[in-house]
Structure formats: C-alpha cells, structure tokens
C-alpha cells in the first residue's frame, strides 16, 4: 500500500487499537453461540483489524510480520467447515449435525463444548481470509 503517512499519532494509535480490535473480534467469535457475534462477524472484524495495520504501515512490513497465505486460509476454513459435517455421518446422523455438551471444571465452573464452534472456526477463517484476499489483491495491483 502506498499511503505515505507521517502521522505519528495515527501510527501509534493503530498499534494499540488494531490489537484491541483483534482481541474483541476473538471475543465476538466465541460469544457467537449465545450472544451477538459468531464466525461471520468475528471473521469480518479480524479482517478489518488486519486491514487497519495494512493501511497504516508499509505492506512489506506487514507481510513480514504476518506471513500468511490467505488464499490457502480460505480453503483451510472451508475444509474445516465441510469436515465437521462428517462427524455427524460417522455417528450415523445426517451430514452437518452438530453436538454439544456441558462440562464442569474446578475453578472455572460449568462451560459448554460444541462442535458448532469448530464449524464456526471454519466460517471465521473463510470469511476473514476471503475479505482480506479481495482487498489486498486490488491494493497490491500494479
């Protein structure tokens, strides 16, 4: 990206804010099953936090910092999402049946484990990576 900014404040704020957004996006992702949030929203928010980094700093720098191939991340996300569906098939239920149960651990208390979260991870990765690929491709042109 070619925006040559010398706005010191912008750069410093971005450093902090983008990671805050990233953290919040992960919270939103996990909150998804019971509160607003989930794979779509979490993925999009992650994408926008990374985009903020790209907008602020040099593209090369970020590429070094996050050496991720987003195209393969799309397929990884899709594979996870499609893959969780097979759990149902193995057990004998229809494709994409999701399971959950409640567990109690000392110190932490009762919590829920659901295969739906795994499925949502796939959605999250797919959405985040797709959005990033679209924007970074057009940004990286020429």
């Amino acid at each position: 990206m070619k925006w040559k900014t010398n706005n010191l404040l912008f750069i410093h704020v971005t450093r902090v804010v983008s990671f805050l957004i990233l953290a919040f996006s992960i919270y939103l992702f996990f909150a998804g099953h019971n509160d607003p949030g989930g794979g779509f929203i979490g993925g999009l928010m992650t994408a926008s936090s990374i985009l903020l980094l790209y907008l602020t700093f040099d593209k090369r720098k970020i590429d070094e910092m996050l050496p991720i191939d987003y195209v393969s991340l799309i397929s990884a996300g899709l594979l996870i999402a499609f893959g969780t569906g097979f759990i149902g098939l193995f057990i004998g239920d229809p494709y994409l049946t999701q399971y959950f149960d409640y567990f109690t651990l000392p110190w932490i208390g009762e919590f829920e484990l659901a295969t739906a979260v795994l499925f949502d991870v796939g959605i999250y990765l797919g959405v985040a990576a797709s959005a990033l690929v679209i924007i970074l491709t057009i940004a990286g042109d020429q």
């Binding site: 989930g38 799309i74 499609f82 797709s130």
Partner: peptide, 26 residues
C-alpha cells in the same frame, strides 16, 4: 445448546447453507 438464535440457525440448523455461502465468498 445456543441462546443466540440467529447464530444457531446459521451454524446448527442451516449449516450447509452457511458453509456454501462461505464457499461463494471464497
């Protein structure tokens, strides 16, 4: 096992639709 119905519809009841929509996005 979820309380956010929109999300439950997306990932549990209509999972295949959702994953295919991500496929479209990809």
């Amino acid at each position: 096992g979820g309380y956010n119905m929109v999300n439950v519809v997306l990932v549990d009841f209509r999972g295949l639709d959702t994953v295919l929509e991500v496929l479209v996005l990809g």
